[in-house]
């Protein structure tokens, strides 16, 4: 269930330096998140979709991911047209559909998906560990990036541990239903996972102290941004500037 299906590949996007990609994603998603006009959001969405297509993601996995995230957008489409705004309404049998609500829902869907595309094209094409080291280079406190990298490292272990306990419960005939017994069983499974991870943490800490750990993790590969990376950054910043300019034009109109 936990994996990074888009991180492997050899496209232009996969080869770029993670630091550059973090800056690019921040710039583009900031402009998209703050824009208030549908045409600008739509343009942004199209541009980021093109970027995403360059990173050649697996289509099946991509569509599954998009559906998962858009369940929330669906919620917006169900609620906003009925509740948002005071302007014109369309009468649809007994429902009052607000046009403002439809506009708002469309804007939010475009923005959400535009940022999602950008995220998938730029960040999901890097491995989590290289992003963690990239964050540290970009000035994130060392303790925090350490926490990030180690949480990532232990995630799979803890998940396996939990699944193992869950399997054991199943083998003993546990079937979840709406009862206090079910909740208690889940709590104990989770409590046991906590106990195990707590003790595992202690053991890892001791092992690392023995190996001379001083609070710094040194990555095996330390990529330096090259010329191509800077060109890439330039293009990304250009895209965000273009979108920002477009929003100013649409506001002044």
């Amino acid at each position: 269930m936990i994996d990074e299906p888009f991180a492997t590949g050899s496209t232009l996007f996969h080869k770029r330096d993670p630091k550059i990609k973090i800056i690019g994603t921040t710039a583009i998603s900031m402009v998209l998140a703050l824009c208030t006009s549908i045409p600008v959001a739509a343009t942004g969405c199209i541009i980021t979709a093109i970027l995403l297509s360059f990173s050649r993601p697996n289509f099946k996995l991509l569509s599954r991911r998009l559906i998962q995230v858009n369940i929330f957008t669906l919620f917006i489409w169900i609620t906003l047209p009925l509740t948002y705004g005071k302007g014109e309404t369309i009468q649809l049998s007994f429902l009052n559909i607000h046009l403002d609500g439809i506009r708002m829902a469309a804007l939010i869907s475009l923005k959400t998906n535009g940022i999602l595309f950008c995220f998938l094209a730029l960040l999901a094409t890097s491995s989590t560990s290289s992003l963690g080291h990239g964050l540290e280079k970009l000035g994130v406190p060392r303790k925090l990036s350490f926490l990030f990298l180690f949480t990532y490292r232990q995630l799979f272990v803890i998940h396996q541990e939990y699944l193992r306990l869950q399997r054991a419960a199943k083998l003993r005939g546990f079937t979840p239903n709406n009862s206090l017994h079910t909740y208690q069983t889940y709590s104990h499974l989770f409590g046991m996972t906590l106990v195990k991870s707590w003790n595992r943490g202690e053991r890892i800490h001791q092992a690392m102290i023995l190996r001379g750990f001083n609070g710094r993790l040194i990555p095996l590969t330390q990529p330096q941004p090259g010329k191509a990376d800077y060109y890439f950054l330039f293009v990304m910043l250009l895209i965000s500037l273009f979108l920002a300019g477009l929003s100013f034009v649409s506001v002044s109109q």
């Binding site: 303790k143 949480t151 490292r153 995630l155 989770f190 991870s197 707590w198 890892i204 800490h205």
Partner: peptide, 16 residues
């Protein structure tokens, strides 16, 4: 910090 990172991972697993 090691304990915290393991609990952070456990918190992530809770959401699954």
């Amino acid at each position: 910090i090691m304990t915290v990172s393991l609990l952070s991972a456990t918190f992530f697993v809770a959401s699954l």
